[in-house]
């Protein structure tokens, strides 16, 4: 009984390690193939469209609502201490440091990461990747690299948009609806939010998350078992793994940065 349990545990561990190894090797291949991107400008633009532009809607809507909720909740909490002037600072700091990068990465995994995995996985199922290889075209260069780079570039941009729209949402609720002084909202924010420490660190976070989300998405697609079921599993794994990786990394990065 215990032996069986141990065996199961060992097998799971070994599979996980093997997958990580494949993931790292795959990443090396992608990095090695990165220079091929210079021939693929139009491919990259196309991918930034499907990865970045098409995620804009969900990012903007979520950013706005998160900002508005922060404004409302923050006001209710701060007004007890007579400190509702600090609303701008509270909203901006939580958005820029934490919620912007983390929520964007989670939404990005759901919207763009899963789509990337499914697309690459289906290309594998329908032998498109094989066909490309047989046409003497490296699918890593042609298919993976543009998608990886597009996802990697889009993440920080989306995170910045999320945070900016979130601040505007907080402003709308705090100043527009609850009557916090507009000048105090901005000046408190500006005096307490530090460009180097808060904005840049948040930006670095979103770059790291972008790297991880892009990596997981393309790897899971490329590594998917080429069946319908395999692709659906890979898609789920992309979302789950990205969420775990982002939350774990966020803790580490926050501990190191702030």
């Amino acid at each position: 009984m215990i032996a069986t349990l141990l065996q199961d545990f060992g097998r799971v561990t070994l599979t996980a390690i093997a997958r990580m190894g494949r993931g790292n090797l795959f990443m090396l291949r992608v990095l090695h193939a990165l220079p091929s991107l210079r021939f693929g400008g139009p491919l990259l633009v196309q991918q930034i469209y499907s990865v970045g532009v098409l995620s804009l809607q969900i990012i903007a809507v979520s950013g706005l609502s998160v900002g508005m909720v922060l404004g409302l909740q923050g006001y209710n909490m701060l007004v007890d201490f007579g400190a509702e002037q600090s609303l701008g600072q509270a909203t901006a700091l939580s958005l820029v440091r934490e919620l912007g990068p983390v929520l964007t990465a989670l939404l990005f995994a759901g919207r763009a990461g899963s789509a990337l995995t499914a697309e690459i996985g289906l290309m594998k199922v329908t032998e498109q990747l094989s066909a490309m290889e047989m046409m003497a075209v490296d699918p890593v260069k042609r298919i993976i690299v543009p998608r990886f780079v597009a996802a990697f570039l889009s993440m920080p941009m989306l995170a910045a948009i999320f945070s900016a729209i979130g601040v505007l949402g907080g402003y709308f609720v705090g100043v527009g609806l609850l009557g916090v002084d507009s000048g105090a909202f901005w000046s408190q924010m500006q005096s307490k939010v530090n460009f180097g420490e808060d904005i840049l660190n948040g930006f670095v976070k979103s770059i790291v998350f972008g790297l991880v989300a892009a990596w997981i998405a393309v790897f899971e697609g490329y590594d998917a078992v080429p069946t319908t079921e395999g692709v659906s599993r890979a898609t789920t794994r992309t979302v789950v793994e990205t969420a775990f990786a982002v939350l774990g990394l966020d803790f580490i990065l926050t501990a190191v940065m702030f």
Partner: peptide, 19 residues
């Protein structure tokens, strides 16, 4: 190998057209 493959064609079961 890629150079050789340029001189080979392969027709896949599903066609494998780029969708």
């Amino acid at each position: 190998l890629y150079e050789l493959r340029k001189r080979m064609g392969m027709l896949f079961q599903t066609g494998a057209l780029f969708s």
